[in-house]
């Protein structure tokens, strides 16, 4: 009964002529698609570059936005600023993950005892999901120091990060909650019937499945956080955007902004590709078969 449930004999197999033919066809089709994609990309790129470089304003734009010398000279400062953005993303990302999870769990708790907890989580989510991020950052960054409270930091970097954490936790909490609620009730029933408590059921059965399910959406939020970390430059924190601004102010050449943009892209594009890959992998074999 163990290995050979189906009584399948292990005969040596070599693909039949029909199968070989199908494989050859699939290979040819793949090659054809790659060639078509490459050719059409080249054509589009050529047309665009001809149109742009032939336009009358191009020499001036090229000088103010794409000056190679300016790019080289501003690069170290912008890169240093960018390094701050990366650190903000990693640290805030971790804190946001923890807060978001806590908020999601708080909102899914049942029973009258937990009413205050649920109410708090709901109010928090409504508030910070409803406020524009830039407003939260401005209010914290300029409001808190003005209050002059004893023992509360006036460090704008810290306050800006707090703003990011508050806003993003509200979003991430909602994503995770959606994941938790998407797990079929029969999974809870099965876990509870084995004697697991409500908390154990969440921890070992519901949340692992929920997080897996919403991972692409969470990674998407991380990419977005990486971009939005640039917003704290309005508080004067020297991140990539602010560093580029300082470099630009010297001679009104905008190339440093382009440098900052390229740096952001160099991180967000691979992250986006990774997110897509995770999402695709989730479909996984066995779930939808060949469809």
């Amino acid at each position: 009964m163990s290995t050979n449930d189906t009584g399948m004999p292990s005969r040596p197999w070599s693909p039949s002529a029909v199968e070989l033919d199908r494989r050859a066809f699939r290979r040819a089709r793949t090659t054809r698609s790659v060639v078509t994609a490459t050719l059409s990309s080249i054509v589009v790129f050529l047309v665009l570059s001809v149109v742009i470089t032939r336009s009358p304003g191009w020499p001036r734009v090229k000088e103010t936005y794409f000056s190679w010398d300016k790019a080289v000279s501003s690069f170290p400062a912008v890169l240093e600023g960018f390094w701050l953005n990366v650190r903000i993303m990693v640290i805030c990302g971790a804190i946001i993950g923890a807060f978001g999870l806590a908020l999601a769990i708080m909102r899914t708790l049942r029973g009258p005892v937990f009413f205050p907890v649920r109410a708090f989580a709901t109010a928090f989510t409504d508030t910070f999901r409803g406020l524009p991020l830039i407003l939260v950052i401005l209010l914290l960054g300029f409001g808190v120091p003005a209050l002059n409270i004893e023992g509360v930091t006036n460090d704008v970097l810290l306050l800006g990060c707090t703003g990011l954490v508050l806003s993003y936790s509200a979003y991430v909490g909602e994503v995770i909650r959606a994941g938790i609620e998407s797990i079929h009730p029969s999974q809870r029933a099965a876990a509870r019937s084995l004697g697991l408590t409500h908390v154990q059921t969440l921890r070992f059965v519901v949340i692992p499945q929920a997080l897996r399910r919403v991972m692409p959406a969470l990674l998407n939020d991380l990419v977005s956080l990486q971009k939005d970390s640039g917003l704290i430059s309005i508080l004067g924190v020297v991140d990539a955007v602010q560093a580029a601004h300082i470099e630009e102010a010297a001679d009104f050449n905008y190339t440093p902004y382009v440098v900052a943009g390229v740096l952001f892209l160099s991180l967000t594009v691979p992250m986006t590709r990774f997110t897509d890959w995770v999402a695709r992998r989730q479909g996984g074999p066995g779930v939808g078969g060949a469809v």
Partner: peptide, 12 residues
């Protein structure tokens, strides 16, 4: 112990 019609194994 309870066993359901739909097995309800934990897929993860």
């Amino acid at each position: 112990g309870i066993v359901f019609q739909s097995y309800n194994l934990f897929p993860h």
